Simulated assay, not measured.
Amino acid sequence: MADTGDEGVVEQAVADAARRLYAVPLADFVASRKALATEVKAAAGPAASKAVLALRKPTLPAWAMNLVPRGDSSALADLVGLGARMRAAQSRLDTATLTSVRGERDAALTAYVEAVAGAADGEGASLSAAAREEVRASAIAALADESASDALASGQLTRALSYSGFGEVDLSGAVGVTSSGSVVSVLPGGAILSGTSTEEAGEADDEEADDGDELTEEELARAVAEAKEAKARARAREKEQRRAATELAEAQAEMSAAQASLDEAEKAARAARRAVVDAQSRLDAARATVAAVDAEDG
């Protein structure tokens, strides 16, 4: 049995094992991990074996997402490329570009979710609506954060990702990592699936947008003001929606009360009609009796 203290050898052995492990069917993960740990122990020592055993089993959505970089990754490539462009635009407060790609963003998210669901179907698994939402949340996180994009492209996610709307995406426990904290395996192409690295894509986008010219102070101030105005409008719309929802709920409650009153009134009217019919019947009977008595007296 090998007993190497070479950290590079250990990490390479773990990376190779992880590349194989995260490609196996989900049901075979635990058994495959154990077998690979034994194999790695003989080749690179107990430290490597222990690291392989520590690799987490992915959730179903994560496993399904790991299939995409290993198959038809065009949807992932589009998502990665779009994310690089959006982050570059965000860094220079280019609200016009961010607004113009909304349709492309929605299409890219939908295409990626369908690609993941299709890959899962191809392996005999089916993603629930909740699982699809986790996939979509992971794609949104990849658009917002470069590290999340790399994790999505690595093919070794262990759980879905999420983005809170600010800051970096929390990747703790979300992707297989080495003892040094680096991703243990990056598939060929990885974060460069589109043929352009994230940094290069950002630079290319900068050149297309302003031919290398930086924003003037006036343009920057205008962009910030526009962003604030957009945020204020969004808040106003949200407030208006809440008010409308409250008014709708009140109107529905009033309608329900009115309907209940109407039902009671109709019930009372039916009872009154029955009482009238009964009274008429009694009156007719009384008249018949009187007529009979008059006939006998006559």
Rank of each mutant, 00 (worst) to 15 (best):
M1L: 10
A2W: 09
D3R: 11
Q12H: 15
Q12G: 10
Y22W: 15
A31N: 09
K34D: 15
A37N: 11
T38I: 06
T38M: 09
A42M: 13
A48V: 02
S49W: 03
A51V: 00
A54S: 05
R56N: 02
P58I: 04
T59L: 10
T59E: 14
T59M: 02
N66Y: 02
P69L: 06
R70Q: 00
G71I: 00
S73P: 00
A75P: 00
G81Y: 08
L82W: 07
R85V: 05
R87Q: 01
R87K: 07
A88H: 03
Q90I: 05
R92D: 00
V101C: 00
G103N: 14
R105V: 12
A107K: 13
L109F: 06
V113D: 07
E123D: 13
A125F: 12
S126W: 12
S128D: 09
E134W: 02
V135G: 04
V135P: 05
R136F: 00
S138H: 07
I140E: 15
I140C: 04
I140Y: 00
A142D: 13
L143D: 08
E146D: 13
A148Y: 07
A148T: 03
A153N: 07
A153V: 05
S154N: 03
Q156V: 01
L157I: 04
L161A: 01
E168D: 11
S172I: 10
V175M: 05
V175G: 01
S185C: 10
V186I: 14
L187W: 05
P188E: 10
I192W: 07
L193Q: 05
D205L: 05
D206S: 02
D206V: 09
E207F: 04
A209C: 08
D213P: 05
E214H: 08
E218V: 15
E218R: 06
E218H: 01
E226D: 12
E229R: 09
A236Y: 00
R237D: 12
R237F: 05
K239R: 06
K239D: 13
K239A: 15
A244R: 15
E247T: 09
D263H: 04
E266V: 08
A268R: 15
R274W: 08
V276M: 11
R282F: 08
A291F: 04
A292D: 15
A292P: 02
A295Q: 13
